[in-house]
Simulated scan of single mutants.
Amino acid sequence: MGETEDISLPKATVQKIISEVLENDLTFSKEAREIIIESGIEFIMILSSMASEMADKEAKKTIAPDHVIKALEELEYHEFIPFLEQILVEHKETQRIKERRDAKFKKSGLSEEELLRQQEELFRQSRSRFNQTTSAADDSPVSESPPVEEIIKSEEN
């Protein structure tokens, strides 16, 4: 595995994934984690090589998700495909939302600097309101504002 010695997966991320899969009373040795990392690297290399071949067969210079799915089929990992197709749908939806949000900013006609200035002003106003409510008497009721997620969703629609 000479050329892949420099390649690794983040140990903390791999450990987190392993910990999420294991039952609470089980532990995982460092050596076992290293085997998982090496196996993961090897799988990624085989899959990407196969996907590259699929792209080459179609005279494409970019590996597309369809090439990866075809490579999984070729490698007989059919059980992964529905999960990955769902991930792809979710990714496309996220990208669509980001593109719509970016287009909204571009259509605003404001420069990035102006948008940043407005954002800073909103932060300043928010800090001011927060400081006013925290300096008020502790027994006075504080009105709740909607969660950030609701505000973002309402702006996207």
Results as ranks from 00 to 15, higher is better:
residue 44 I to D: 00
residue 65 P to V: 05
residue 71 A to I: 01
residue 43 F to D: 01
residue 76 E to R: 13
residue 107 K to A: 06
residue 146 P to I: 08
residue 152 I to T: 12
residue 29 S to N: 01
residue 104 K to I: 06
residue 112 E to T: 15
residue 71 A to M: 10
residue 97 I to C: 06
residue 20 E to C: 14
residue 101 R to Q: 09
residue 33 R to A: 15
residue 4 T to C: 03
residue 60 K to R: 11
residue 23 E to D: 13
residue 51 A to P: 12
residue 131 N to L: 04
residue 95 Q to I: 08
residue 67 H to T: 10
residue 5 E to D: 05
residue 78 H to R: 05
residue 11 K to N: 05
residue 61 K to G: 11
residue 43 F to N: 00
residue 98 K to A: 05
residue 124 R to Y: 06
residue 1 M to V: 13
residue 65 P to D: 00
residue 152 I to C: 04
residue 108 S to W: 07
residue 46 I to T: 08
residue 127 R to D: 14
residue 70 K to I: 00
residue 100 R to G: 07
residue 23 E to F: 10
residue 69 I to N: 02
residue 14 V to S: 02
residue 31 E to F: 06
residue 24 N to I: 08
residue 9 L to H: 02
residue 28 F to H: 06
residue 91 H to T: 06
residue 102 D to M: 06
residue 78 H to A: 10
residue 33 R to S: 14
residue 116 L to Y: 07
residue 111 S to E: 04
residue 94 T to R: 14
residue 131 N to F: 04
residue 61 K to C: 00
residue 45 M to C: 10
residue 145 S to F: 09
residue 15 Q to F: 05
residue 120 E to D: 13
residue 84 L to N: 10
residue 144 E to S: 11
residue 145 S to W: 03
residue 19 S to Q: 10
residue 91 H to Q: 03
residue 125 Q to F: 14
residue 69 I to L: 15
residue 61 K to A: 06
residue 115 L to N: 00
residue 132 Q to P: 09
residue 66 D to R: 02
residue 113 E to T: 11
residue 133 T to R: 14
residue 32 A to E: 03
residue 28 F to C: 15
residue 80 F to C: 06
residue 91 H to W: 12
residue 126 S to E: 03
residue 97 I to F: 05
residue 132 Q to I: 01
residue 137 A to P: 15
residue 129 R to L: 12
residue 123 F to Q: 08
residue 110 L to C: 07
residue 133 T to A: 13
residue 62 T to C: 09
residue 3 E to R: 15
residue 21 V to N: 10
residue 45 M to S: 15
residue 15 Q to S: 15
residue 106 K to N: 00
residue 100 R to Q: 10
residue 56 D to G: 01
residue 155 E to S: 15
